[in-house]
Design a binder for these strands. Sequence first.
RNA 1: CGGGGCGUAGCGCAGCCCGGUAGCGCACCUGCUUUGGGAGCAGGAUGCCGGCGGUUCAAAUCCGCCCGCCCCGACCA
Length: 454
Amino acid sequence: MAREVRSYRDLPLNLYQIQTKFRDEIRPRFGVMRGREFTMKDGYSFDRDEAGAEESYRAMVEAYRRIFRRCGLQFGVVEADPGAIGGSFSHEFMVMADTGEEAIHVCGACEYAANAEKTPVRLALPAASGGKIEKVHTPGARTIGEVSAFLGVPVDRLTKTLLYLADGKPVAALVPGHRELNETKLKNALGAAELVMADPETVQRLSRAEVGFAGPVGLSGARVLADPSLQGRAGLVLGANETDYHYVGAQEGRDFRADAFADLTLAQEGDPCPRCGKPLAVRRGIEVGHVFKLGTKYSASLGASYLDEKGESQTIIMGCYGIGIGRTVAAAIEQNHDADGIIWPVPLAPYQVDVIPVNAADAPSREKAEALYRALEGEGVEAALDDRDERAGVKFKDADLIGFPYKLVVGPRGLKEGKAEVKSRRTGETQMLPLEGAAAALGERIRKDAGAPS
RNA sequence: CGGGGCGUAGCGCAGCCCGGUAGCGCACCUGCUUUGGGAGCAGGAUGCCGGCGGUUCAAAUCCGCCCGCCCCGACCA
């Protein structure tokens, strides 16, 4: 694109491709949801300025909403972490499903919805009094639970010190004892590309103690980041960097000093909504689409620029947009099935109609069924003809399992009145149609179903 | 790389704990009936019980080793 785009007249530009991608997954999982090979639609927008880029982004979000709505999906658009792809902000399209692989937070009171790792947390810890720092013997107490039980101190008075290697450099992260660290937040706070928990050898080297007794007091060789709730806080219980010892009564700013403060904790169910303060609920979702506002991250580094009206060189503003095709289909099935099988939403159905001659031995049924099948094709409907020599029940059950939105049943019973029966897979509702014009009527109905529902 | 599970008839499984010569459903074969929601009845065939070794009068069953597959976690869209 850097070579293709010259002038502001070439912008905005929006390109997409649909192709097979490969990721070297350590372990493929969730059936078709996470394999090493998958099909993805990805698209990229190129704009002259921020306003244009934002408009492209907004239009793409709206297009994605419509696509997923037509796929018959119940989904949410959530704020997400841009992750390795980078960029200034991003949204994920999450299909709500209990089998989903990602936790998301939703607020029942307002519109807030976000990837669980994205939700900001502002902790309000109970007031704690000072006192002086003291080293106490805590034999064998390594975990927060053990230390809390041993000292008889509530867990929110303790402080977790977690040692990480950020791009190879040691970092100590401090969070209140009753909360989990959010590694994504820590990674972002450090601006690190790679973050791994320190291995036991490194922990022992840094804390000069066995694993489980690390703390910030007297810790050298590691940058210390702490949750803002710990700033200046007194009465802390901390690892003493000595096997079987903890400090009590420690105070940030007096006994040790954090190098920086940042929101590091993982939001959990019941935490206040960052927008309206009501408690958040946790739900699970399947990520089917992801949009990123990239800004100039890639265009700048790849030298993608254009000449504006004044002939001055400007950097192109980019966005990037992806849909996981296979998992979208999987998610659609997840949300559209019953005990008998798949219920394809019409726009996704590989075939919209299964034409079933009820008794293959009955020549009139067979002939009328075939005629209807051809007529449907003439209507532009994708139809299948089940001309197998099977009992009617078998064909019905198979049609249900495969999920054809409609069955068109042709048998002696209906033919006596010159009619065929249409049955909806979703509602089970049936309707007798005169053979004459049955294909046209059904075609009409399918075209209506296929259009974007409200 | 860590944790767990499973290998028995074509397919899905029970039997294993408590050792006694292998069973259920579906599919299959034969006959009759049935034919608009996975047909019914009667009769029939089917097994190196993952492999190797050990214990025992006797091993699908107990013990050891090996092989294969699956699930969970670390990773990730």
